[in-house]
Nucleic acid binder design. Structure first.
Lengths: 339, 339
DNA sequence: AAAATTAATGTAAGCGCTTGCAATTGTCAA
DNA sequence: TTGACAATTGCAAGCGCTTACATTAATTTT
């Protein structure tokens, strides 16, 4: 079935009556080849249906034009959207995307990173900061530039392209508190191995502290990233006495699950219970009431991350971090607590 | 910054006091190497932090263990979910995934396919059947196995892993007609360049014909894959006289958009207007009422597609197509028409 | 018109790995 | 002990491309 005799550079050279070097140059730096030679070469390429051998190219040129990304999962709007933009950008730049997903598991992520590097990725996109130093050393030793997205930290040796989860969550919590809520529930994603989720919890805690609200007033439940779990969680929260008047959720999926369950329990959102989200993905406007949530510019983040990575690969230097500013979108799921 | 002197096979060989051939064999067929030699080699590898050069390997071995996928977009639950399962499966098999997205554009897809092949993908996942013969010829000539997913056709030379969009849509339409609807609206995704969308429309048409309902009773609008467009579309459909009693949507996103708009127009779903979806993605249970829709086992499809591709690459033969059976999930968005 | 530049091409040495084949070592029956 | 055979290992020829350097052709300068 296979035809193992694809045309090579040499065949093209022969057909065009030039040396292989000239063909190579016609491909990689056409400006350095005389017009008519170039035309002849291109004709030969077309005639033979030639396309360069990737391995040979990578071997000789020491670069693959391949950029890797390791994300927790593709099956999740927030990464999918950002990744799509990331891909569009690097594709426009003539590179291709190699993806792997870690299923939110640290050891799997490490393995995937090593695999991507072994596969020739010459730059890598990672989500968040939370991983062993070994990996950062490994990347440094191999001279592979990387960007940490979906998070942002000042004065770091890493290049972050993302937002400050801590302050974003804190801002949302402040808005909640200013409305008069003081008995708070929170449903967070699993914080183990997840710096973003962790920072969001910390942000909420800090807001409470600044408002002199005792830490016991915050009832926190962690659940996996699935809206059914959030349903169970809110049921549990609402069983508390006194019952919280608002539930701050670590992301929109959890918020949606919480809203659904609250409604099916016969509560009105937000009159009886306010619920807030985080991310501003599509579902937040599908649920009723629409979610008051923190808007994250995922596409923009993906695009910028790609640009940083491309720049770092090109210049061999560390690109400065880029901070994106989340903004709170007020829709209908948050209001003042009932008297 | 970069350290350009990574250890090579030769360094390892020297360290372990064996030939490069033996090191290579220790890596690729450890059984053919004596126990103690193997141990020595592995120690050397660890000591030096060696990891094989991808390009060299690909060049010498003529395979990359890389599988490509070209999907319309990653930013869409139906592909994201299937792709995630696809990735998990090939990853488990020691291959990595190279992805590209075509933004639903045929000419871009062609370019992406060629790029992936040039990048060394040794098998490819494609969505649907709708593309020029040139590409199929190109893949055949290069001996690259491929699977067409998200669609299924009998007696084809291609390996399909998917479902029959035509009959799935027809089944849904039959259910609608059996309920007594005879003035039908339909909102379809863009059918240009999209065989799945087209087949769904044809399925609905065929159901009408079999129920002896004149074709004029079907009002069809095509819109891009965004729920706002579906909102505008349903508004237009509802302005017809007589007004349809049901709107069949080509996918869940459109159905959600339609439901939202209908409700905001003051109509009750399904009492005043029934609306059906297709795909059964997460949003179909988030909207209220929950969607009556066609369930597609996306994860299963992704996994099976990966298995077929791996088998084809391994055996060098064409794998038989696999048909998945969609089932209609009845939830709350479809009921009998009002008298 | 010859010399000095500059532009275009060719030559050939790798890049790091795999693998067919040859050489070596070890094992076992006779 | 020896020869036959199997199990290991080494040798070395590529795999198809890039690129530093050398060479030749085309332009410009004086």
């Amino acid at each position: 079935m296979r035809n193992h005799s694809l045309p090579t550079l040499e065949d093209v050279a022969q057909e065009a009556r030039v040396s292989t070097a000239t063909v190579s140059r016609s491909l990689n730096s056409p400006d350095s080849v005389a017009e008519k030679t170039l035309l002849r070469v291109q004709a030969a390429i077309r005639l033979l249906g030639y396309s360069p051998n990737f391995g040979a190219r990578a071997l000789a040129a020491k670069r693959t034009n391949t950029i890797g990304a390791v994300i927790p999962t593709m099956d999740n709007a927030i990464f999918a959207r950002g990744l799509q933009a990331f891909q569009e950008t690097i594709s426009k730049n003539g590179s291709t995307l190699l993806v792997a997903s870690s299923s939110y598991r640290l050891e799997l992520e490490e393995e995937q990173i090593r695999t991507l590097v072994a596969r020739g990725a010459d730059a890598i996109l990672l989500i968040g900061e939370n991983r062993s130093d070994d990996i950062y050393e490994f990347l440094a030793k191999r001279g592979i530039p990387y960007v940490l997205a979906w998070n942002y930290r000042q004065n770091s040796d890493h290049c972050f392209v993302g937002f400050n989860n801590h302050t974003a969550a804190k801002d949302m919590a402040k808005k909640v508190l200013n409305l008069g809520h003081f008995k708070i529930g929170m449903i967070s994603g699993l914080t183990h191995d997840n710096d973003r989720a962790r920072d969001r919890v910390l942000g909420v805690r800090e807001a409470l502290a600044e408002h002199d609200i005792p830490a016991e007033n915050l009832a926190l439940i962690e659940v996996p990233y699935e809206f059914e779990y959030a349903g169970d969680a809110i049921e549990e929260l609402l069983a508390n006495n006194p019952r919280p008047t608002v539930v701050i959720c670590g992301n929109d999926i959890l918020a949606v699950g919480a809203v659904k369950r609250a409604k099916s329990m016969g509560l009105r959102v937000p009159e009886d219970i306010s619920i807030t989200g985080f991310d501003d993905i599509e579902v937040s406007t599908i649920i009723e009431p629409e979610l008051t949530t923190v808007h994250i510019p995922h596409r923009k983040m993906g695009r910028i991350a790609a640009e940083c990575l491309l720049a770092m690969r090109r210049d061999g230097s560390l690109s400065p971090s880029k901070e994106l500013k989340p903004i709170i979108i007020e829709r209908g799921s948050l209001c003042e607590p009932r008297k």
